[in-house]
Structures are given as structure tokens and as C-alpha cells.
Design a protein around this nucleic acid. Structure first.
Lengths: 221, 221
DNA sequence: TGGCCATAGATTGCACACAATCTTGGAGCG
DNA sequence: CGCTCCAAGATTGTGTGCAATCTATGGCCA
């Protein structure tokens, strides 16, 4: 009954982790043989993983010229955040009446963990925030149970990864961001979609301000 | 200088045409060997085409169990049209100031052709409307030049195909739909984003009403 | 010296063969 | 009679070899 996992799936998630954790620079070339050796499989599952990652928008695929880690211009990032600020609040509002106690508990737990590892001090671990944040937003998508919205979001949520995620946040913005998660959970627990939507809107715009500032600095250099 | 086309690309577009033209029933199994023989290539490019079509949302891919033509429930279709009614008007508004005279001419031409083949009578050809409509909306996406919006839309625009597209339209709805295209071109030519957005909103809602009615009938049977 | 072109190396694209997994039909047991 | 289990056929997953294409280096010519 232990469902076996295919090599493609392992290659897919391994590659996704590597890229999301910044092991490859934005725009870096992803050779098939190199990745195959690194992951211990043949080129075939690597190729399939790359095409799927291209569909997710994490890599760019050029015929006969291989794959590169995707990169976004400032203009494209603006488009991404405009889109997210439309879709994610709506999704959050839809999730509110559908969230079961277990869901709320899971979200609460994630928000608490993020507060923990994000608190300034020697124990702060900005890299640990990345997967937690991904799971928080992913869980909201799951709860909302709106395949169309989920599909639309899937193609754009990865855009900010080249900015090394939370390293771009100043202390005030980071504190706001983590507080937003907690407040969203509170709004869901209160069964108030308008509240949840509003906080999510603020959350996206806060991130937008941070990312665009960082992207502009990066592009200027 | 004649850029060669890979087998994968040919398989991809051929398969997409076959599905979009209703050659396969919704939910039909898509065997790799069968498709490979039909398209005259090996299984390898077929597999890659299938994974890309899965990313587009045209087929559903289950590990070890192959591919099926995607199908949508009434609830999912509602989600799709909610999303489109948000994104496509916005996209249209953004396209207005960016449209060059050649773009307007091309849109005008497509709208005119659709009026032609859609006119009731012996020459009416509802199947010919499908590619024309796709090109019209695709051209708008191109003109708007918003990668994030385009990516978000790409995953959902194919949803209504299982309803055999324009065959589901009653005469009044079809006439409205074709008139919308013409009016959108007029709004773009006038440089009026608000006008264009409004007509596109009406256009999507008109389609929504038709599709949901057809889907409910189909689901009831 | 600067630009163009050819050739060699590297890389992706495709086909095919084999392995792993799923499905289906039927036999055997309770 | 119904359920479980098993085996054979069919289908997908993966590895590997070769062909097609791209890239880079160096020579040639103006």
C-alpha cells in the first residue's frame, strides 16, 4: 500500500527544492546530464521534470538550447503582484467558510512557527521561513478548493524566488508579514471573510513593496 | 534560416487541435502508443506533448495510469468563468493603449470573419469559429504583453471545450458574442479602455450563461 | 586587425528496448 | 454464490544509443 514514487517525481521535487533554495542563480543553465548525475537518475526523468517545472514557471525552456532558471524583470514582477493582489484575497475569502477546525489549527501552527523562526535574534532563520510560508499559502489554496484559481496562481507564485525571499525584507516589513499570517488565522477562526481578505490584500502589498524595492536595486547593479 | 520544427512541437499542436476540435470525448483515455502511431512519431515526443498539455489544463495526467482528456464539473466551470471575468477585461483594458494599427486591423479582420461564418444560414460554420475565436483572444493577450496575466489565463481558457464550443450557443447569444468582438475592436480603435473592458466583461458573462446552461443539461443527462 | 566561416565538441531531440506497474479475467476457497 | 488472490496481457516509466542541432574556437581572407 506504500505507493511507490517514480524517479520523475523525485527529480521534480528535488529540482524544485534546489531552485527554490537558491542553489542555482537566476538565469543559470541547467544541463540535463549534469542534473541527471547530481540526482542519480537518467536524463529521461530529468527532462520530464524540467518540462513540468517550465509549466510551473520556475524554469524557461528553449528548444535545442536547454533549460535555464527563470528570471523576472521589474515590470514582470509588478504584473505578478498585481495579479496576486487580485487572486489571493479572493481565494482567502472563499477559504473562510470552508476551513475546518483541523485546517485552522494547521494554519495557526504554521503562523506560530514562522513567528518563532522569524523573530530577530541569534535564532532567526530566514531560510526556514521559505517552506513554512509556502505551506501556509498552499494550505489556503487547498482549503479554498477552487481549481481554476489554484491553477492561475500556480504559474506566478514562484516569481519572487530570485530575490532570495525573506532576505530582502527589512525588519519592519518582516514583522508585518508574519503578523499578517497570524491575523489571517484569527479572521478565519472568526468566520469573517471580509477581514481575512483585507489582511491578505495588505499582506500581498507589503510583499510587493519589499520585492519591487529589492528588484530595482538588483536591476540597477 | 528555415527554423526546424521538432517532433514534440508537431505532436503538441496536433494533439491540441484534435482535442480542441472534439475528436476525443471528454474523459477519453489517451494511450501513448495509439497517439504515437496516429501522429507518426515515437512515444517520447508524445509523452512530452502530453505533459505540456497537462500544464495547459487540456489533459489530466495520472501516474502509471496515463492521460485522459480533462473534464470540468459545473462548479469548476463557474470558477473558471469567475476568473476569466476578472482577468480578461483587465487584460483588454491594458491592451488598448498598446495596440498598434496593424494589431487593430488584425483584430478587425478576425471579428469580421467570425461575423461571416457565424451568420445564420446555409453557409454558417460553427466549427470554423473555434480557431478564429482562439486567435482573437490570443491576439489580445499578445498585445497586452502581460506575462503574468497570460500565464494565469492559459490554464483556464480551454475549460469550455468539452461543450463543443459554439454549438451550445442559441442564436441570440451567438449574435451577441460576435457583436462583442466587433465592439471591442471599435473601443480599442477609439482608445477607450473603459469601453473595451466593459464589453469584454459582458462578453465573458454572456459566454458564462451559455456554458453553464449547457453544462447543467449535460450533467443532468 | 577585424569580421566571416568552417570544423570539432558539447548538448538536446528522438527512437527503441527493457523494467516496473496496473488492469483484467478466471480459478480456487470459504 | 461471492470474495480473494493470482497470472497474463497491456500500459507506463526509465535507461541508453544515435541523430540533429547548437556553440565555441581557431583559421582564413579582406
Amino acid at each position: 500500500m506504500t505507493r511507490t514514487v517514480t524517479s520523475t517525481e523525485r527529480a521534480l521535487s528535488a529540482l524544485r527544492e534546489l531552485i527554490l533554495h537558491g542553489q542555482f542563480a537566476a538565469g543559470a543553465r541547467l544541463g540535463e546530464v549534469e542534473l541527471a548525475e547530481r540526482l542519480g537518475v537518467s536524463r529521461t526523468p530529468v527532462r520530464e521534470a524540467l518540462t513540468r517545472l517550465a509549466a510551473e514557471g520556475l524554469v524557461e525552456l528553449v528548444p535545442n538550447r536547454g533549460a535555464r532558471v527563470a528570471s523576472w524583470s521589474v515590470a514582470e514582477l509588478e504584473g505578478v503582484f498585481d495579479l496576486r493582489s487580485t487572486l489571493e484575497p479572493r481565494l482567502t475569502g472563499l477559504a473562510v467558510p470552508r476551513a475546518r477546525p483541523a485546517d485552522v489549527a494547521a494554519l495557526d501552527d504554521l503562523a506560530a512557527q514562522m513567528l518563532e523562526v522569524g523573530r530577530p535574534g541569534p535564532a532567526q532563520d530566514l531560510d526556514a521561513l521559505v517552506p513554512l510560508n509556502r505551506r501556509f499559502h498552499g494550505l489556503l489554496v487547498e482549503i479554498a478548493d477552487q481549481p481554476a484559481l489554484a491553477a492561475a496562481l500556480a504559474g506566478v507564485v514562484h516569481a519572487p524566488i530570485q530575490l532570495r525571499n525573506f532576505h530582502a525584507y527589512d525588519e519592519a516589513s518582516l514583522h508585518r508579514s508574519l503578523a499578517h499570517h497570524v491575523e489571517i488565522v484569527a479572521a478565519i477562526r472568526a468566520g469573517d471573510p471580509t477581514w481575512a481578505q483585507a489582511v491578505m490584500t495588505a499582506h500581498i502589498h507589503n510583499a510587493r513593496a519589499v520585492m519591487l524595492r529589492a528588484a530595482r536595486e538588483q536591476e540597477a547593479s
